[in-house]
Design a protein around this nucleic acid. Structure first.
Lengths: 350, 350
DNA sequence: TACGATTATTGGAACGTTCCAATTCAGAAA
DNA sequence: TTTCTGAATTGGAACGTTCCAATAATCGTA
């Protein structure tokens, strides 16, 4: 007869000991594999555990240990495939090290972010990888100074927070894609999407400006529009810029999602992207490859960033005295159709 | 001077008590908010906790309580946006109930799945929502019978496992989209992608067969091809079917990802999808909307499924004696361009 | 046979919390 | 003043584990 569910709480090490005719200490030894216990005894104990459906109580164990081998992964936007891939990289590395990642999604809410990080610390997480929500303030992370939970910030740099960072090379990447447009002969180039307050936008826009300046191109402030970093935001920003008297011939977008919105808006205005106007993005999400025309963008290898982040965090967990360290991941130009380079090459060849 | 990190382990309730000049019991009372404590005392205690950087030890607390207000969410494939959206639905509901979801990704590995579920139980999760990895066997879940962790299976039905399920209406959805093709006049219709062993494929293929039969269409076994449920798989299956002497005029794909691969293969063979051949998918991922031609598919509302799953699990956690219950989410036809209905309507009108 | 030297096993004291029963306190009523 | 009452506070016993020091069993060897 199946035991009535949760009848008398969980079965403990002591009940196992009784049933196996040994002491709780012996059971603990087979559980941790630390001391030496006679093979037959171990077998016997394991068998009883299996029979009674024993589950280890990590809370109780941590009471003495404080080594929980879990790390928290806090994501600001799980619906963005970029972060899902980042998470996959993180998990890959943690798994090899015998850790398990507990993920949580904050959906850009700082309140929720505080909540889940507290929860993770309460559960004794050894470390936390944080992709910070939009308006995370440095003081939200004051706890690191005193805590025994390691912290690493990823994807979005958090100025004024002295912990390890793993971020993509936003500035250089934006420079590269902008230079590409310049080389294609564009003069009036717009920068669309993202909010001014976002650090990532500041970095990417900085790269844009640097490339424009280096090429001696004028930067028209009317061609710098902010928007929510969504498809709709991109659509709106592009519509706005197309209604100007003096339209740009190319636009650099904050990211791929914005770029895709911008392409839709261009099409709605009767423009053929890649011929009448060039549009480029950032991130190289899988959508970038599959929209039509395929999006020229900047690839940042989220999986690789995730792996680096996890590796760095583990290093920190193992040696808490270590100095914070930063890793800047590469961001390389991926030329497809939306910038018009392909069409141009065809024309030249034909 | 900032306390040296992790100097002497975490700050405990007793240290707070000492510093605040009260007993540990009083501190516990302000922590739980259960008894009545003088406002000034509470204030004093809270202040000291803040000053010393106290973090609650949930493990220790659970030792008496066994009510951890966390639930585990085990996903088989986080890189699939469908599951990311499902997770968002789950989180939304759990959050309102004051629970937090800890997610883990199994990447279709049963071993990893076992591992993370055990971890979650060890940490005292009140319940687990499982999107099972491909070859999960019923015996992997035998623990539910005896455990005090509730279990709910989502997205992929697990035959022979007597727990609550939340799954989309695969059979009816596949029937609908097949009937749509039949109504457009197609005779030879293929079913592509997914492995025969997948329950979801069995359901969808079942729906396909039912619709074909109801319409009196012949089903050619040569037009039922399995493949990995990936873009490449879809590409391969479509290529195979196009090399047959007697090609189909329409194909129903296991899901959108397969369908997109199939469309690429069709294009490679010089066929215009929507004109020369009809292709339809299943799931209505965001990619479906943005490929060209836009994919006709079946929408299943992953967020809604997530919400339902969370709600059902909470019900079960609160009353463990409750009978397992199933929810079958709607799956509605979304007509776009890849089936050719739009072109046909245009032709009829013009 | 007796002796160390391992190897196996064990009881009890932590760990940080909650809960219970008991105590103290403050103010109102007598 | 004393007594009563309810509010506020408290010590100590759990909870399920690990670790330590101590004991018991086993074995090879003198």
């Amino acid at each position: 007869m199946p035991q009535p569910k949760g009848s008398k709480g969980r079965v403990t090490i002591i009940e196992i000991a009784d049933a196996a005719g040994v002491s709780k200490s012996t059971v603990s030894l087979v559980l941790t594999g630390r001391g030496s216990v006679k093979p037959e005894t171990r077998q016997q104990v394991l068998q009883v555990m299996d029979r009674l459906g024993y589950v280890y109580n990590r809370g109780a164990a941590n009471l003495r240990n404080a080594q929980s081998r879990i790390v928290g992964l806090v994501l600001n936007d799980l619906s963005n495939p970029f972060f899902a891939e980042f998470a996959i990289g993180v998990e890959k590395v943690l798994q090899m090290a015998g850790y398990v990642a507990f993920m949580a999604n904050t959906a850009e809410s700082v309140v929720r972010q505080e909540q889940v990080m507290r929860m993770m610390r309460e559960h004794g997480a050894g470390g936390i990888i944080l992709c910070p929500a939009l308006d995370t303030r440095p003081e939200h992370l004051d706890w690191v100074r005193v805590a025994d939970t390691a912290l690493l910030v990823a994807i979005r740099r958090l100025p004024g927070v002295n912990v390890s960072h793993v971020v993509p090379e936003n500035l250089a990447g934006a420079s590269r894609v902008t230079r590409h447009l310049v080389n294609l002969g564009h003069e009036r180039i717009a920068f669309l999407g993202g909010m001014h307050s976002m650090v990532v936008r500041q970095e990417r826009h900085g790269g844009f400006l640097a490339a424009m300046e280096a090429a001696g191109r004028a930067v028209d402030p009317a061609l710098n529009l902010e928007s929510m970093p969504t498809r709709d935001g991109g659509f709106g920003a592009m519509s706005a810029v197309l209604s100007l008297a003096d339209r740009p011939t190319a636009v650099v977008c904050y990211n791929d999602v914005v770029a895709i919105g911008a392409m839709l808006a261009a099409a709605r205005h009767g423009l053929v992207v890649g011929r009448d106007i060039a549009v480029v993005g950032f991130d190289d999400t899988s959508e970038a490859r599959h929209v039509s025309p395929a999006l020229t963008t900047v690839a940042v290898d989220p999986v690789g960033l995730g792996e680096r982040a996890a590796a760095l965090l583990l290093k920190q967990i193992n040696d808490p005295a270590i100095e914070p360290e930063s890793f800047i991941g590469p961001a390389n130009l991926v030329i497809r159709e939306s910038c018009g380079a392909y069409q141009r090459a065809l024309a030249a060849a034909g």
